[in-house]
Amino acid sequence: MITLEHISKWVTTAGLRTFLLKDINLTIKEGEFVSIMGPSGSGKSTLLNVIGMLDDADEGKYDFMGNQVHSMKEKQRSQLYKQYIGFVFQAYHLIDELTVYENIETPLLYQDTKSTERKAMVGDMLDRFQMVGKKDLFPTQLSGGQQQLVGIARALISSPKLILADEPTGNLNSRQGEEIMELFKKLNEEDGVTIIQVTHSEKNAAYGNRIIHLLDGRIEHPR
């Protein structure tokens, strides 16, 4: 599904290159549940952003489901990620002015889905996450765990093939964190959604079937 070849990304300050990612080679197959680990500043989020096409690499080749992402234009790339990728954030990033229902609905509005279809899809999603009773509440009226559930529901509404999660449990207590991880596992196993998550916690990383360690922008290969 994803093939990264010699991916590097850097910033130049005072003529000096500081590598954020250096010579990353990585293949992720469809149906995998990958956890990216590493200390702060090791490039985890940058890697995730490159994979999510929110950021581009300075060097290297990126193949996403047969598309040469590195040679695509901004517009084509956004078409691509809109279609296949869902994002989940540590800080949930829900829109405060929208209800739970409307937050989940938002991606569909931008895909010009018909109103009746939207209703059905959001309704299904609410059912699945057992949030029907909370659909008219605003994000601030929910607990952190519930907000993250909404965030995941929103990421799933357009049926992505890939979910990118940047420390999805970072702001949650351990019980809430476990629930989210269980959900990810279920999505991965039952629905076949590919998941890439960034995490600090060994315990959460263990939910996946593969762990990638990053240090100073390089992948550390198990010795």
Partner: peptide, 16 residues
């Protein structure tokens, strides 16, 4: 800004 970011990732075009 935050809202704009979220919406863009959710697929919003600048025009919308």
């Amino acid at each position: 800004a935050n809202e704009v970011g979220v919406r863009k990732i959710a697929g919003a075009s600048r025009l919308s």
